[in-house]
Structures are given as C-alpha cells and as structure tokens.
Amino acid sequence: MSSKTLTAAAYKPVILSILQAGESYGYQIIKKVRNASGGKLEWPSSLLYPVLHRLEKEGLIQSQWKLSEKGRMRRTYRITELGQKELSAEKQLWFNVHNTLIKFWKTAEVLD
C-alpha cells in the first residue's frame, strides 16, 4: 500500500470529522486540513470537491446552497446521521490500526 492510497483513504474520516464539528464548505475544509496537518498531508486540494460529492451520494453528508457573507453562492455541507455512524466506525478502524502499529513499533524499539 503506497502512502498515496493511504492519504486517499484518510479523506473520508478527515472530512467527516471536520463536519462533525459543524457545517462547513469546500475551501474551509481544505484550509482546516492544511492547518491541522501542518501541510504534511499533501492533497491536490481541488480534488476534495469530487470527494465531497461522492460522500453526499453515499448519504454520509448533505449539501445546501447558501449565500456567503460576500454575497456569493456557496455550497455548504453537513454531516448526516448515517455519516456519524460511519465516522464512529471509521474511528474505531483507524484506532485499531494505530494501536496495533504502535505496539509493534514499541516492542521493536525495546528489542533494538
């Protein structure tokens, strides 16, 4: 598994987590990811938009057109109930992965 596929897999939990904190929109989500990862998770940011559409199609999030403070149309996204369930499942999964790896790496350090 290349790291690129891993980052791509991380899209879903990341977006869902951001939306869990409240309604958001494309550029804001991009910025939040950028800030949170300190630029370490490198996504071609514009490709986030199709991902949002996919999640919406899967019913995990919901979109709405709203007027921004600058008077422009803006598509905002909100997490759905199904999305929340999916997020906790994802959370569990990522924790499991994380815990397993940490154990190995720690024992590896001891053994060194």
Binding site: Y25, G26, Y27, Q28, I30, S46, Y49, H53, S68, K70, R72, M73, R74, R75
Partner: peptide
C-alpha cells in the same frame, strides 16, 4: 455549472 460555481467560490476565497 453547479460544480464550477462551487469551485469558483473556493478559488475566490483563497485569492482573497
């Protein structure tokens, strides 16, 4: 069209 509007909004925000 809706995709483009969405993308444009993102672009504008970043420019601002």
């Amino acid at each position: 069209e809706s995709h483009v509007i969405e993308l444009e909004e993102g672009l504008r925000e970043e420019i601002e």
